[in-house]
Design a protein around this nucleic acid. Structure first.
Lengths: 161, 161
DNA sequence: CGAATTGATACGCGTCCGCTTATCATCTAC
DNA sequence: GTAGATGATAAGCGGACGCGTATCAATTCG
C-alpha cells in the first residue's frame, strides 16, 4: 500500500474519491450487519428505531422519522411490528392524545443490546486489522465527519424545502 | 469554521456503529458530489464508468459492469448516452465481433479529469477540517478497508450468487 | 363554537435498482 | 457444419423508497 504524505495535502498520492470509498465500505459493513440483525429478528429499520429510542424517548413518530432520516409514513409498519413483538411501547400521550409516546420495553432494550454487541464484535475484529495509528484516526475522524451537518459537507445551503 | 476534534483526550468511548456512521457520511458525500457531477453533465453511473475506463481499457461491457458493481443490462443506457456525447468509444472487437471495446475519448478524459478535480477540491476542503493526526489515519484506513473483499468484512463466505 | 392545524395512518405514484428471461449475433468445440 | 456457449440488448417483474394526497381524531386559536 502506498504511504501517504500527510504533511502536504497536494502531494497526496492519487486515491479513489472519498465517496467511492465510503460507498464500497458502507456496502460491506451493511452486508455484514444484516445477517447479524436477522439473527436477532431485526430489520435495518427496526434496529435503527431501537437505537434511536434508546438514546432519548420521543414524543411523536414524526420526530422519530425525522431523527432517523426515514419517511414518516413508512416507519409506521416498522413500529407496528416492533410493538406487536413487544420491543417498543407506543402509548397515547395523555397530554396530547394525537401523539404516541414511544419508548423501549425491557425486551426491546435487551434485543437492542445483544444485537449491537454482536455488531460491535464484528466491527472490532475488523478494526483490529488496521494499524493502531490508523485505527484511532479513522474512528475519530469518522465520528467527526458523520455527525457533521450535511450542508457542511456539501458546502451548499440545505436543499430541503 | 469550527475545527473537528471530538476525541481530544481519550478515545474508544461508546460510538455509533461503524455502519451507521459510514451510511451518514456516505449520504453526505454523495449529496455533495451529485451537483458537481451535474455541472459536468454526468450522472453518478456515468462518472463511475468514466473512472473505470480510465484505469484500464475493458474488452467487454459485462466486465465493466462487474468491475463497477452494476447490472450488465442497466449500464447499456449509460454507455449509449456517454457514447452519443462523445465521451467514450465503443467499437466492435475485430477479434470477437460480439464484444464491444470500451475506451475513453479525449473528451471523455477531459470531462473525467475536470469532474474529478472539482470533487477532489471539495473533499480536500473537508479533510482539511480534521485534526492532522486523524486525517492521515482516516484516509489510509479508508483506503485499506474499502479495498478489502466483502467477505473479509462480513466474515462470511461470499453470498452464494 | 367554528376554523385551521397537527399527528397518525392508509394509499397510490414514480423512480431506481437488482434479477430474470428472451432474442439475436457471433464464436468455439466437436 | 451443427451444437452449445458467450456478448449485447430489450423487456418485464418486484422490492424498497421518497413523496404527495386523503382521512380521521384531537388540539389550538380566534
Amino acid at each position: 500500500m502506498p504511504s501517504l504524505d500527510p504533511t502536504s495535502g497536494q502531494h497526496e498520492r492519487t486515491r479513489p474519491d472519498l465517496a467511492a470509498m465510503t460507498t464500497a465500505l458502507n456496502r460491506s459493513l451493511v452486508a455484514a450487519e444484516l445477517p447479524v440483525l436477522a439473527e436477532h429478528g431485526l430489520t435495518m429499520w427496526g434496529y435503527v428505531v431501537l437505537l434511536a429510542l434508546d438514546e432519548h424517548p420521543l414524543r411523536t413518530q414524526a420526530a422519530l422519522a425525522e431523527a432517523i432520516g426515514a419517511d414518516k409514513t413508512r416507519i409506521i409498519g416498522v413500529l407496528d411490528d416492533l410493538q406487536v413483538r413487544g420491543l417498543i411501547d407506543r402509548q397515547r400521550d395523555p397530554a396530547d392524545r394525537r401523539a404516541r409516546l414511544l419508548s423501549l420495553t425491557p425486551d426491546g432494550h435487551d434485543v437492542r443490546d445483544s444485537a449491537q454487541a454482536a455488531i460491535r464484535r464484528g466491527e472490532e475484529r475488523l478494526l483490529a486489522r488496521l494499524p493502531e495509528r490508523d485505527r484511532k484516526g479513522f474512528v475519530s475522524a469518522l465520528i467527526a465527519l458523520s455527525t457533521l451537518p450535511v450542508e457542511d459537507i456539501t458546502g451548499r445551503p440545505a436543499d430541503s424545502a
